[in-house]
Design a protein around this nucleic acid. Sequence first.
DNA 1: TAGATTGTTAATCGATTAACAATC
DNA 2: TAGATTGTTAATCGATTAACAATC
Lengths: 245, 245
Amino acid sequence: MKAPSPREDGRSDGHSAQTLDHPIPEQTLRRVPLYHQILAEMLVAGEPYVSSRHLAGFFGIDDTQVRKDVSLIGYKGKPKAGYSVSGLKLAIEEFLGINYENTAILVGVGHLGSALSQYPGLAQYGLRLVAIFDNDPAKIGSVVGGFTVLGTESLPRVVRSFDIGIAIVCVPKGAAQEVTDRIISLGIKAVWNFSPTRISVPADVVVRNENIALGLAILSHYMKRQKHAGTRPAVPASGSPTIVG
Amino acid sequence: MKAPSPREDGRSDGHSAQTLDHPIPEQTLRRVPLYHQILAEMLVAGEPYVSSRHLAGFFGIDDTQVRKDVSLIGYKGKPKAGYSVSGLKLAIEEFLGINYENTAILVGVGHLGSALSQYPGLAQYGLRLVAIFDNDPAKIGSVVGGFTVLGTESLPRVVRSFDIGIAIVCVPKGAAQEVTDRIISLGIKAVWNFSPTRISVPADVVVRNENIALGLAILSHYMKRQKHAGTRPAVPASGSPTIVG
DNA sequence: TAGATTGTTAATCGATTAACAATC
DNA sequence: TAGATTGTTAATCGATTAACAATC
């Protein structure tokens, strides 16, 4: 198997469009959506202000870390009061770009694709699903989550008419790269890949390879360690929470 | 909203059981499952050896990084030849604990729970799903992915009879903490949480909070940056791939 | 005002990368 | 053997945490 050589063929399998310059640390980018989640719950609970210390407590991190992250996204708090919950939440949304509505299509209406097409979290983060596709004649024409499943021959027409920004790929392993190449040839610049394999894209396209099973592998390792840890004396009250992406 | 105080109440929302000592860097733990995925594909392709340089190429990282990671999991390569694909793959499986069969239950048979109960990737990583549960009378008794949906009153019986290790939680936001507490009271020590909220667990329980929408937030930020990056001259051939968990 | 909290600079810590001897 | 590749120690880089002045 040949490894991709991004320097030669201009393809990469990461957020290559981002790597041109790095003003925002990757770790900050991982934490910010977590803050957003807490802030959304606080807003519902009607809490007007939150301190960096309080926010840090949810993740077992240092409060300086929170202040630095907030500073990086360009939001200012009030000394003594803390951060405005609604203000910081909005600033994060602006920073992440989740209040711009992004139109999306989904390709591959299997179990996972079907679940995603009905997942309320997508709309919550500004994603508007416009159409779903499959190449199985038995599925084409059926209705899933309010969408009529279209055949892949309709891809060019739909992508052009709706100015689609994101393609969600949920096809089987063997079809993932081929489907992705085809979608990209239609002009789509962002791919959210849920197929159980990594895909490569040209340097001007953003891709995020999700792999649900990878999370299981990490969980599995911690379970194994925990079993063995039981044989050693436990150190009480020293376990602080860890964020594991 | 009150932040959890792990030092006081012994609860945390991370892999607290792991934080007692840290022999393995968190970043290594994130990369190792990615290596495994590539090695699995290479094994199918019949390639006997792989060099650290080749493996590193898939992720745009330094080959020294790969050698250090491999060294941390305790596997040895052959100078000049590289690593045995099957040997390293097996060593990773041993290290992650994914060749020990873990029995699991799944609670909450909504769209996502239903998709997960039929996801072939679970078995691939050593997870054996034993039963699925819901509290909706309309779902109880129906068959999803080969499992008859059980009512939650059957939880104690099933957990005890099958020595269940992992609970996969796919219930709505409002029910997640309550369901988790109940499961833990039955003796389960690992929770894989797919509900769209963070859950807290006692220090001796391992939890992994997955949130599909967080990935979308990160992708969204990169898309936004990419749009703006178009106004600056692009630096060609410098974009190396980035792993974004 | 006094006290609490932000924002930022400096110090520490950990992770990545470079250098290179050991090995086949 | 010569050349390629591992394994590991040292140097660099980046991220976290500590310290503290500024602010309300």
